[in-house]
Amino acid sequence: MRTVYVNGEYLPETEAKISIFDRGFLMADGVYEVTSVLDGKLIDFEGHAVRLQRSLDELDMQSACSKEELLEIHRELVRINEIDEGLIYLQVTRGSDGDRDFVFPDPVTTKPTIVLFTQSKPGLADNPAAQKGAKIISIEDIRWGRRDIKTVQLLYPSMGKMMAKAAGCDDAWLIEDGYVTEGTSNNAYFVKNGKIVTRPLSNNILHGITRKAVLRLAAEAQMEIEERLFTIDEAKEADEAFTTSASAFVMPVVEIDGVALGDGSPGPIAQRLREIYLDESRKAAI
């Protein structure tokens, strides 16, 4: 049985409770982060902590604890649950001061709700899916406009993954005004003639922590990078493609809407970036 963290307490998962009036439950009024664990250490914790604070600030939501306290909670959950490879899910909601209401509760009298739990995933770094590569479909992007805030409003991304599953594929890329925004839970890239192309940061996409690290490592490896809008048709004509996320790192894409990329196997740049990212992340883990 896992030990989880809820509002200052470490509890068996069967004893963890929050109010039915919590705004995270009623309004999806909450934000989250997912931090990977490799070799019992946290990957990119600082980046996740900074992005969490940004999400809270954008929603005028209070912090539940300091960054130092958050680090200690993460480490304690890794220790208690004996996580060698896996994930730590963190969620902060606005909490509740009583009955359901569209109006935000008074921040002076209402404490945010904070929840963390671990997921053990042996073999996370050596995921066989990365050797096979992902097949994706494209779907319309009908999410709200502030995708840069990592909120718990995940119904449509979840539906997108189910659409992909129904089509015999692994994931979906989202299309808005003719251009790819991102994947359902990852940032999207394609490679053409050795150049990595990805959409620039804005309110339209999540400011991926893994994205930032991978682009930095690609630049250090003297790979050519272009941040611009791109269409799904451009991606279909690419030599290779990939996605990045905290839970899948660098995931090669081998097919888009039934069109095989290159020879239909993971491309060399995606594979090299995954190797570099995992190596450097392990060195910097805390």
Results as ranks from 00 to 15, higher is better:
Met1Ala: 15
Thr3Glu: 14
Val4Ile: 03
Val4Gly: 01
Tyr5Val: 00
Tyr5Thr: 07
Val6Asn: 02
Glu9Ser: 12
Glu9Asp: 13
Tyr10Leu: 11
Glu13Trp: 02
Lys17Gly: 08
Ser19Leu: 15
Gly24Thr: 07
Leu26Pro: 02
Ala28Thr: 07
Gly30Arg: 00
Thr35Tyr: 08
Val37Lys: 08
Asp39Lys: 14
Asp39Cys: 13
Lys41Tyr: 12
Ile43His: 09
Gly47Thr: 03
Gly47Cys: 04
Leu52Ile: 05
Ser55Tyr: 13
Glu58Pro: 04
Asp60Ser: 09
Gln62Asn: 07
Gln62Tyr: 00
Ala64Leu: 11
Cys65Pro: 08
Lys67Phe: 04
Glu72Phe: 02
Arg75Ile: 10
Arg79Asn: 13
Ile83Thr: 08
Gly86Trp: 02
Leu87Thr: 00
Leu87Val: 00
Tyr89Ile: 00
Gln91Glu: 15
Thr93Glu: 06
Ser96His: 05
Asp99Gln: 07
Val103Thr: 15
Val103Leu: 13
Phe104His: 03
Asp106His: 08
Pro107Gln: 13
Val108Cys: 02
Thr109Ala: 11
Pro112Leu: 12
Leu116Glu: 02
Leu116Thr: 01
Phe117Leu: 09
Gln119Thr: 06
Ser120Trp: 03
Lys121Arg: 06
Gly123Ala: 05
Asp126Leu: 09
Asp126Pro: 08
Pro128Leu: 02
Gln131Leu: 05
Lys132Val: 14
Lys132Met: 09
Lys135Glu: 11
Lys135Asn: 06
Ser138Ala: 04
Ser138Asp: 10
Ile139Gly: 10
Glu140His: 08
Ile142Cys: 13
Gly145Ala: 07
Arg146Asn: 10
Lys150Val: 01
Lys150Ser: 05
Thr151Lys: 04
Thr151Tyr: 05
Ser158Gly: 15
Met159Asp: 05
Met162Cys: 14
Lys165Phe: 11
Ala167Phe: 09
Cys169Asp: 10
Trp173Ala: 09
Glu176Arg: 15
Glu176His: 13
Gly178Val: 04
Gly178Glu: 03
Gly178Leu: 05
Tyr179Phe: 15
Tyr179Lys: 14
Val180Ala: 03
Glu182His: 10
Ser185Trp: 09
Val191Asp: 01
Gly194Thr: 01
Lys195Gly: 03
Ser202Trp: 04
Asn203Glu: 12
Asn204Met: 01
Ile205Asp: 01
Gly208Cys: 03
Thr210Ile: 01
Thr210Trp: 00
Lys212Tyr: 12
Val214Trp: 01
Leu217Gln: 11
Ala221Ser: 14
Gln222Cys: 12
Met223Tyr: 10
Leu229Ser: 12
Thr231Trp: 02
Asp233His: 04
Glu234Asp: 08
Lys236Trp: 09
Ala238Gln: 06
Ala238Glu: 09
Asp239Met: 09
Ser247Met: 01
Ala248Asn: 08
Phe249Met: 04
Phe249Lys: 02
Val253Thr: 01
Val253Asn: 00
Val253Leu: 06
Val253Glu: 07
Asp257Ile: 03
Gly258Cys: 04
Val259Trp: 05
Ala260Arg: 15
Ala260Pro: 12
Gly262Tyr: 01
Ser265Phe: 08
Pro268Leu: 02
Leu278Pro: 11
Arg282Asn: 09
Ala284Phe: 12
Ala285Tyr: 11
